[in-house]
C-alpha cells in the first residue's frame, strides 16, 4: 500500500520535473512563415513617358500632373530648338482604392479632353504565392474638339470620340530593372475614309533602369500593327528624377501628343529625320483622404 503511494508520488514528481525542463525560449523560435510581399515601385510614376505604367496613384491621393512637349529640336535656333512651341496637358488623377485610379485631362494639342480608369487586376508578389508579373487594365476615352477644316461633312460629337484599351503586363525583375508590355487597341469612331479601319492594334514595350537611388532611365516604344499612313512609331527616352515630394520626368520623343490616340497612332516626327521633341512631366501629389490606419491618430 505504502509503496504504491510512494510510487504515485515519484511519478508526479517526475512529471512535474519534466514540466520544469520545458522552458520557453522565444529567441529560438524562428518564424519561417512566408509573408506575402507585394512588389512596389515597378515604375517611379503612373506614366512611363506618354503611356500609362502599371503604377497607380495611392488611395486617397490626388495627382496634379502638368506635361509639356516642345517643338522639334531640329528646327534650330530661330525657334530656340523647339522651346518656342509648346503643347501641354494638364490632368488630375485620383486613387479611389489602391487598385483603382481614375483621371481626367485636357491637352492643347487638337484641343482634346480625355478621361481614363486604370484597374490593377493582378499584383506582382512573393511569399505565399509567387506571381512574377503584375497586370492592369486601362481604358480611356478621348474627345477631340478642334474644329475640322472639312466642310463636306459636319461631324456629330460622338464622331470626335476615340477609345483606347490597354492591358499592362509589368515585371520588376530586380531593384534595377523593370519591363512592361502594353498590348493596345485604339478605336476611332470616325476615320477619314471607308478603306481605313476603325481599330488600330499596337504593342508597347517599356522599361525602367535604375541608375542611382533617385535617378532612373526610362524608355517607351510602340510597334503599330495597323498603321495610319504618314505617321511613325513613337519612341521616347526619359530620365525620372525624384526629389522629396515630386517626380520630374524629362525626355526626348518623336511625338507631341499625350493621349493614346495621338502619341501611338499619330506621331508625326521621325527619329531618322531628327524630329525629336524635348518634354517634361511634373507631378504634385496631394493627400485628400488619409489612409484608414492613420485617421484616428493624433500626433
Amino acid at each position: 500500500m505504502q509503496i504504491k503511494q510512494i510510487g504515485i508520488f515519484i511519478v508526479i514528481f517526475l512529471a512535474s520535473a519534466q514540466l520544469k525542463a520545458q522552458t520557453v525560449d522565444l529567441f529560438a523560435e524562428e518564424s519561417n512563415k512566408k509573408v506575402k510581399d507585394i512588389v512596389t515601385s515597378t515604375f517611379k510614376s503612373t506614366r512611363i513617358v506618354n503611356g500609362q505604367s502599371i503604377e497607380n496613384v495611392g488611395a486617397g491621393v490626388l495627382d496634379f500632373r502638368i506635361s509639356h512637349r516642345f517643338g522639334a529640336i531640329s528646327q534650330g535656333g530661330y525657334n530656340l530648338f523647339g522651346l518656342d512651341q509648346a503643347t501641354m496637358r494638364i490632368g488630375l488623377d485620383y486613387g479611389v482604392i489602391p487598385r483603382l485610379t481614375v483621371g481626367i485631362g485636357r491637352s492643347t494639342y487638337e484641343k482634346q479632353y480625355d478621361a481614363f480608369l486604370k484597374f490593377k487586376i493582378l499584383q506582382q508578389q512573393t511569399g505565399e504565392k509567387n506571381i512574377p508579373v503584375g497586370i492592369s487594365y486601362v481604358g480611356s476615352t478621348i474627345l477631340k474638339t478642334i474644329k475640322d477644316a472639312s466642310t463636306t461633312y459636319t461631324p456629330y460629337t460622338t464622331d470626335r470620340l476615340s477609345f483606347a484599351h490597354q492591358i499592362l503586363i509589368a515585371s520588376k525583375i530586380n531593384d534595377y530593372l523593370s519591363i512592361q508590355l502594353s498590348p493596345t487597341v485604339v478605336h476611332y469612331n470616325l476615320v477619314d475614309s471607308t478603306n481605313i479601319p476603325n481599330d488600330f492594334k499596337s504593342l508597347g514595350i517599356s522599361s525602367r533602369l535604375r541608375v542611382s537611388k533617385r535617378v532612373n532611365i526610362t524608355s517607351e516604344y510602340y510597334i503599330r500593327f495597323d498603321k495610319l499612313a504618314g505617321y511613325y512609331n513613337p519612341l521616347s527616352i526619359g530620365v525620372d528624377i525624384e526629389t522629396g515630394g515630386h517626380v520630374f520626368q524629362l525626355h526626348v520623343s518623336n511625338s507631341k501628343g499625350m493621349t493614346e490616340r495621338t502619341f501611338i497612332n499619330e506621331t508625326t516626327g521621325s527619329w531618322m529625320d531628327g524630329d525629336l521633341c524635348f518634354g517634361f512631366n511634373i507631378v504634385r501629389a496631394f493627400s485628400i483622404r488619409k489612409p484608414k490606419e492613420l485617421r484616428s491618430i493624433k500626433w
Partner: peptide, 28 residues
C-alpha cells in the same frame, strides 16, 4: 517567468499619409 520579450515588424507594413513618402521609405 523569464521576462523574455520579442517584437517583429514588416517594414512594408508602415503606412504613411503620403504614398510617395512610403515608397521612398521602403526603396531609398
Amino acid at each position: 517567468a523569464t521576462g523574455q520579450i520579442i517584437f517583429g515588424v514588416l517594414i512594408k507594413g508602415f503606412k504613411f499619409e503620403n504614398q510617395l513618402m512610403e515608397d521612398h521609405f521602403n526603396e531609398n
